[in-house]
Design a protein around this nucleic acid. Sequence first.
DNA 1: CATGAATGAGTTTTCATTCAT
DNA 2: TATGAATGAAAACTCATTCAT
Lengths: 213, 213, 213, 213
Amino acid sequence: MTQTPTTNTVTDSDSEAPALSDRKTERRNSILQHAAKLFARDGYADCEMERVAAESGIAKGTLYLYFRSKEELFCACVDQGMRELQASVQTAASQHTAALEKISAGILAYLLFFETHPEQAELLIHERASFHDRLTPTYFMYREESRERWRTVWAELLQNGTLRRELKVDQVLDFIGNLVYGTMFTNHFLGRSAKDQHAVIMEILLRGLLAPN
Amino acid sequence: MTQTPTTNTVTDSDSEAPALSDRKTERRNSILQHAAKLFARDGYADCEMERVAAESGIAKGTLYLYFRSKEELFCACVDQGMRELQASVQTAASQHTAALEKISAGILAYLLFFETHPEQAELLIHERASFHDRLTPTYFMYREESRERWRTVWAELLQNGTLRRELKVDQVLDFIGNLVYGTMFTNHFLGRSAKDQHAVIMEILLRGLLAPN
Amino acid sequence: MTQTPTTNTVTDSDSEAPALSDRKTERRNSILQHAAKLFARDGYADCEMERVAAESGIAKGTLYLYFRSKEELFCACVDQGMRELQASVQTAASQHTAALEKISAGILAYLLFFETHPEQAELLIHERASFHDRLTPTYFMYREESRERWRTVWAELLQNGTLRRELKVDQVLDFIGNLVYGTMFTNHFLGRSAKDQHAVIMEILLRGLLAPN
Amino acid sequence: MTQTPTTNTVTDSDSEAPALSDRKTERRNSILQHAAKLFARDGYADCEMERVAAESGIAKGTLYLYFRSKEELFCACVDQGMRELQASVQTAASQHTAALEKISAGILAYLLFFETHPEQAELLIHERASFHDRLTPTYFMYREESRERWRTVWAELLQNGTLRRELKVDQVLDFIGNLVYGTMFTNHFLGRSAKDQHAVIMEILLRGLLAPN
DNA sequence: CATGAATGAGTTTTCATTCAT
DNA sequence: TATGAATGAAAACTCATTCAT
């Protein structure tokens, strides 16, 4: 495995080749979809380009017209997934106006996304395992980006007195980020369902474990 | 990569070969230590047995007198790590008598363990990436085992009214398990320190985010 | 050495991949020829695929586009050889009409074949040595097949009174099969020539050792 | 496999180390016996010294106190076998006084020996396969040696008019040598029995296939 | 004499990538 | 554009032999 220490950056949604023909875009997406499934199932090393091509209904050589290398293809899969995750979460949040409801909806959407796209959870693992050298896993790149959006929501709650005064926004963001991240992987590995947990998570998160007084 | 669908079981601390000579035990541990470091650094596939041997100061063939295969060696590393993790956490908890203090100390010890042994965090990832077929990652095997021990602690807190009546022990165990798991990985990837977070984690965990009333 | 207990069957002359392009067929035959020579010279284990490729003027990887494994390549060599042997013998026999002349010509062709293709004698040995598990050596598969063709020739001689009445066709077939098999190997090992012996063999075979009366 | 081009010579029955203690001789023979069985079953390369030792009830290192190397052990097995073959044949022949009866008994003993000791047939194959470079297989060394003994028997038959005048002793010796060699291997591979064939072999050998006149 | 722990050389096969058609 | 034949680097594991005890 070649581990060229590529720096990974959050790809702007439209940074691809300028105006791909419809045919190309369609085929590119098809490849991406099949590749993600296979990478997730077999791991980076054990996923053969040959099979990705076959599964996508094209020849091996053709693959290289769309992605310069296996590594680039893999990264495109992860990136695509993270973009979809963000879209899911934001869409869910935007359905609500109340800050706490935005937050609750966002958490649920996050957990549901990985439940619906379990291959994305696997890809996160394989990325770290195979591209160890990359400074920061793609997931955390996106997490940081997303953080900014949520920061304003929490800041509002802090200012209007909904939250306990002594907390700091960054602490809250960290706490929740870690909680959902851990919950997602546990669900994935142990086959637990998001729906069941969501209410409890929100309950403990907001009110804590201790009995009042 | 050989993916013989081995069932992994939590190894009893003393189930090894019956009474290895001191020399053998010592050498075995040395190998384990060096291997864990290299597996963590390079990943399963990219960690060559040749190098493990060299690093351990023995010949390649000798490695195979102690571990039947690369896979077995790797698994022994993970297992060893998880055993040490458990020992760390239990030792820390046992220093205290009050349930809440046991819990707080246990969480801190958990986070500190992975801060001190970052290779163990990596091994967990590599295990999943390379032995995808194993039913349950070793970490979760140990997590389940550990769960039983903590259940009694929480049960006591619930019965004596420290915790809110409406919570269930299993919900609490899940919540905390997910929280520390996610926190540990975030710390590992982003280089954050356990000490700084511990107080905040306990604070939010126990009292929640919302201002009282 | 992999000893997958493959059942070996007499390959129909035309059962190969359906219509290989000329280029492929040509290259396949070239490989077969070089491989047979090297397998014979070095034995199965000591014949490296690398060298077979080099000798055939192609890259190691290319070898595997034509033969799935070393074992398959080896077996193809043996099979090819046995097919050529049969062709040689049958061609020689078909030049004659008289039964005894057919037989004599067949025996001579058989001995000459191995004299011209000494590597085939070696391959028979290496096959047995390395693929011990195969039920019946390829040679004997072909021998059985060939037996049927010769049975009719001998049956005729028996019925028209040329042969001694008390003999049975199967006994004759066995006797001659064993005789030429042993003679061939002796010639091969001791460097004796077929031509010199042919007359004597036929003489003793037909008239025996004892003086008449 | 190391192929040091050893020249193999027919070992004089008493050329071993001078006067081995009974214990050593006994153990040496035990090793020889177990090794022959294992070499025959697994082939030279696949027969591990470890297993030979285990089967012989001694430690691996001890093996090397009796045989300098694997090659030497193997050769000793073949040699031992060939000596026993000769003894069998000579003993059988010596029971008779009439030349033809000596010959008939010798041939039968030869075929029966390999039927009783099928591992010796295998060893002959493995020797050639693994020690390709040796000028002449051990079998043929012994065959040449034995030839001299039989030459006198046949010479007598030729001189007293039992055999056809036009035959030469060497031709007869070759013919029979090849015949029994081929018959022996066929029996071995196809599981045929010596007894059944012996009468037919002698019949065809002595009187030929053709009806008289 | 006997042991068995330690050594290290050696080879098949896969698969990402290229490039002539 | 699309194809797929050709390339060649790369690593686990075995086992004969040695030698300190």
